[in-house]
Design a protein around this nucleic acid. Structure first.
Length: 914
RNA sequence: GGACAAUUAGCUCAGUUGGUUAGAGCAUCUCGUUUACACCGAGGGGGUCGUAGGUUCGAAUCCUACAUUGUCCACCA
């Protein structure tokens, strides 16, 4: 009757939404309803710019596997969901949409408030979509703690950290060369640049006829702002010029004073060995400028390009107002006319472009807010860089318990290398969608600030207010700029847990006061390697600095998903696989399983529909196995046995209540339970799933269930129930929906999601099991039939020779050998008089009497091949054992194994030849 | 230019401290609709583990060099 209710094919669409609703209603997604040791994972908040893609689907699968596994292990699990306002990305996207709708300059036309309104509308919409999609993935997160990087609680955290950094002198407003997107009218951090290769012209020239050295550049127009030429101090050709100042007239507003300076980084061999230094328009040159200043040999700084990509007054009357390219042409034609141009060559060059707006960035000197990564933190004698470094090496505060481990290890090196090269982090952005910098100025000062191009002597200290809340009095104006989105994302592990504990965030929810204490540092964080620097680094920075704690203990780095050709999935190339469509077609479980199969930590993997198909088949196989067990072996609840409990006593085992097959499957199941635990704890998701698949399909379905059709014993019902129940638990983290659905079919009232993770059954400790040997016999017969093309209906006469003391045993397996898909077999079991001292071989020979004459030659060929192979191995093994060095140096166990193998193979050979 | 990875069956990938006939899934070929499952079952074929050296009793695994592919960083002024 039960089987009538269960269709042959598992229909995912029928179950998924209902099951998710049931889980949600149960309250088990919320750790407040769980007890035990806390375990927390913060979901990397997806941007509110789009929809769920395969990368998200992978991440959700990984996180949910861990969350469910830990929950079943009796932990108080928090998987905290959230979304990211993704400052630049979102504003850029909405502006683009508005432009497409015909609004030419959204910022100007709409103004701050109206544009923000539009962006908010878009973001909220997108947020709702993506959250719905996360639910669709089956992710077991606590929706009551849903967070957003741009809500009030997170804003308060941002302001407080900003203020703390400011007070510690780690955030400063400085005039530095920064990356500027003309199109986006905003700064970008170094990490936000995407390097694009493109052809360029390299011009070699002299500033003036009598200038002693030539320099090369791809940006001639910036040379109107040169203030120095750098040479290597060991360069014999130029050494004598170091320190000299040359005044040249190149058409700029004022004659340029070019100082020859020394810089170790200039390569003597490269080009002319001399570098024109333009501090205003090159990050490296700006560093030289700062260095010169610090050693008391200052050089000038002349800004010749403005924020709109046009030449400034400083570039000279001829150039002012010209676009960069026009200025370049003009300058080149001037050089030609003056006969100063020496060489012109085509090269390819990498240009930093804005990640979000797509234009090549200009380097401009600007007054911006920076996080100083090298300055010592007051009272710490360590810089932020040091904190970031220590957290993954010696441990935060040199405490190994506060050390972050990165899986796979190699990313640790990449991370440390990045930290070494880190410059001060420019955190201010000139876009509107983001946390506004919590800094306030007096009116007249903001006027100066905005229109001063560069004035080192501006001192605004007394007129600046930095704080969580706006200052009193109405003559204060807030800084127009917003913060880099990573500033708020960096706080994610603790800003989501009620830090800072403002009255509002915790009102009426006393238990939440403890969230931070309970769940921080978080236990596990997973992310793609592409945001290692953006995010991992910044979370470590923020958490160690603000909380004096690491943000998480373990980081798991996953690779990127690529399509079957190895290309990145991208919207523009139209090769996108929509995870939701795939889930609709094959089921969410199949999608999840396929995403985590065949992946190794940190490595990219390819994803294609066939993979999902395979996973779907696995899911369906499990469905049918369950269907069969539930139908034919009454479910355990009816027999008043607790889920997963197997009542087998040592006595029963001794009394042979268990058959060879029973022992074999129970043994292998113990091995599986152990292996899955180890794999999950080492984040080997793919391997754990692989082993589950192997057991379920190849052990349970292909052998044990088949055996059960012929071997009827009292214990079968209990064993099968035990196996099914615990197997469902093991599978649950990977394929939560179908396992929960089957669980309900079993008749359990309690949900699978909070069942206890299977533990090892200590009564099952069986040695000397020979079921593998039975399998060997059966396979031999099948193999023979198939190879010799003998019809299953035709009777096959098989003789099995068995050593004396195993005769009764093999006799007892007669029915299995005859029945297990071996076709029609007439079995004759013969006693061999040999004594049995061969551990491995209980069956010494099988001879199959031939039914038809022509089969003889086929069989001879088949045997010949086998014999050949065996002889080869025997020869190799013999020569290995003849090698004295092998005997002397290899471990005893290895030598013994070789010896055993040799005896085994020799007897096997004898059998085949005989 | 620097760093990191990958290179194993037609394809996609495993291979956990070096241990001896190198595994899986898909594809392919042969056979089979026997009431859990054709989203199935049984069986077969297919790899000198990128190349060349080295270490070792023993190497897909460790070392060196090279090749190819990919990624990241730095950038040529």
């Amino acid at each position: 009757m039960l089987n009538k209710e269960l269709p042959k094919i598992y229909n995912s669409a029928e179950h998924e939404d209902a099951i998710y609703a049931k889980w949600e209603k149960s309250g088990f997604f919320n750790p407040d309803n769980l007890s035990g040791e806390p375990y927390s994972i913060m979901m990397p908040p997806p941007n509110v710019t789009g929809v769920l893609h395969l990368g998200h689907a992978l991440e959700n699968s990984l996180m949910d596997i861990m969350a469910r596994y830990q929950r079943m292990n009796g932990k108080k699990v928090l998987l905290l969901p959230g979304t990211d306002h993704a400052a630049v990305a979102t504003q850029a996207k909405v502006e683009k949409l508005l432009v497409e709708q015909g609004l030419t300059n959204p910022r100007q036309k709409l103004g701050r408030d109206k544009l923000l309104e539009k962006i908010r509308e878009y973001a909220e919409n997108s947020k709702a979509t993506i959250l719905k999609q996360i639910k669709k993935m089956g992710t077991s997160c606590d929706w009551s703690r849903l967070a957003y990087t741009f809500d009030e609680a997170r804003n308060s955290a941002v302001n407080i950290v900003f203020k703390k950094m400011y007070n510690d002198g780690l955030i400063y407003r400085g005039n530095r060369a920064v990356n500027w997107s003309v199109k986006g009218q905003s700064t970008c951090s170094d990490d936000e640049l995407v390097q694009v290769e493109r052809p360029a012209k390299l011009y070699t020239f002299k500033y003036a006829k009598d200038f002693p050295l030539a320099i090369a550049t791809t940006r001639p127009e910036t040379k109107l702002g040169d203030t120095a030429v750098a040479v290597n101090p060991r360069d014999k050709r130029y050494k004598k010029f170091i320190g000299q100042i040359f005044t040249v007239e190149v058409g700029a507003a004022k004659p340029l004073k070019i100082k020859i300076i020394a810089d170790e980084n200039v390569e003597v061999e490269f080009g002319t060995g001399a570098v024109g230094v333009t501090p205003a328009h090159s990050l490296i040159d700006f560093e030289m400028y700062e260095k010169q200043k610090s050693i008391g040999e200052p050089i000038g700084l002349i800004q010749v390009i403005d924020q709109h990509g046009q030449m400034t007054q400083a570039a000279g009357k001829e150039y002012a107002g010209l676009a960069v390219l026009a200025a370049r042409e003009k300058f080149i034609s001037w050089l030609k006319k003056q006969e100063l141009l020496i060489k012109e060559e085509e090269i390819t060059q990498n240009v930093g472009t804005s990640d979000r707006f797509g234009d090549a960035v200009e380097i401009l000197p600007m007054t911006q807010w920076f996080v100083d990564v090298n300055k010592k933190i007051p009272g710490k004698n360590k810089s932020l860089k040091d904190l970031m470094r220590e957290a993954v090496t010696a441990g935060h505060n040199n405490d190994l318990k506060q050390k972050i481990t990165i899986t796979p290890e190699r990313f640790e090196k990449i991370y440390l290398n990045w930290i070494d090269n880190l410059r001060d982090w420019c955190v201010s952005r000139q876009i509107w969608w983001g946390h506004r910098i919590p800094v306030y100025y007096r009116r007249q000062e903001i006027f100066n600030f905005q229109f001063s191009i560069f004035n080192e002597n501006t001192n605004l200290q007394q007129d600046i207010y930095v704080g969580e809340k706006p200052p009193e009095g109405d003559d204060w104006v807030q800084d127009e700029d917003t913060l880099d989105t990573w500033f708020s994302s960096g706080l994610w592990t603790f800003s989501t847990l009620g830090w800072p504990a403002s009255a509002k965030a915790t009102a009426g929810k006393p238990e939440k006061l403890n969230d931070l204490k309970t769940f921080h540092p978080t236990n596990w964080m997973q992310m793609g390697y592409e945001i290692l620097f953006f995010w991992l680094a910044r979370m470590i920075l923020m958490s160690t600095y603000a909380l004096d704690q690491i943000p998480f203990k373990d980081v798991y780095i996953h690779g990127m998903l690529r399509n079957e050709l190895g290309k990145k999935f991208s919207k523009s190339s139209g090769n996108n696989l929509d995870p939701l469509e795939v889930a609709a077609k094959y089921g969410t479980d199949a999608l999840r399983l396929s995403l985590i199969s065949g992946i190794a930590p940190g490595n990219d993997s390819r994803f294609y529909e066939e993979k999902v198909e395979g996973a779907r088949n696995m899911v369906n196989k499990l469905w049918n196995i369950s269907r069969y067990i539930i139908t034919n072996y009454p479910p355990v609840p009816k027999r008043h046995v607790r889920a997963g409990e197997l009542r087998i006593t040592n006595n029963e085992i001794k009394q042979k209540k268990l058959t060879q097959a029973d022992e074999w499957i129970l043994n292998n199941f113990q091995i599986l339970v152990k292996a899955v635990k180890i794999d999950l704890e080492n984040y080997n998701f793919s391997q754990a799933a692989g082993k589950l698949r192997e057991f379920t399909w190849n052990y349970l379905a292909d052998w044990y269930l088949e055996v059960c059709k012929f071997e009827k014993t009292d214990k079968k019902n209990e064993i099968l129930s035990y196996l099914l129940i615990d197997l469902l638990k093991l599978w649950h983290p990977f394929i939560p929906f179908i396992t929960e659905a089957i669980w309900a079919e079993c008749g359990f009232k309690k949900m699978l999601i909070i069942e206890n993770w299977p533990s090892l059954n200590k009564t099952i400790n069986i040695k000397n099991n020979y079921f593998e040997a039975i399998i060997g016999v059966i396979k031999d017969i099948r193999d023979y039939r198939a190879e010799n093309k003998i019809d299953l209906s035709k009777k096959l006469k098989v003789e099995i020779g068995v050593v004396k003391d195993k005769y009764n045993f093999i006799k007892s397996q007669e029915i299995l050998i005859k029945s297990l898909k071996t076709g029609s077999v007439e079995l004759e079991i013969k006693k061999s008089n040999k004594s049995n001292n061969e551990k491995f071989s209980i069956i010494t020979f099988i001879s199959i009497s031939l039914v038809e004459g022509e089969v003889g030659t086929r069989e001879k060929a088949r045997l010949g091949k086998k014999i050949n192979n065996l002889e080869k191995i025997i020869k190799a093994t013999e020569s290995r054992l003849a090698n004295q060095e092998f005997i002397d140096k290899a471990p005893e166990a290895v030598v013994k194994k070789e010896k055993d193998k040799l005896t085994l193979y020799k007897s096997e050979l004898k059998r085949l030849k005989g």
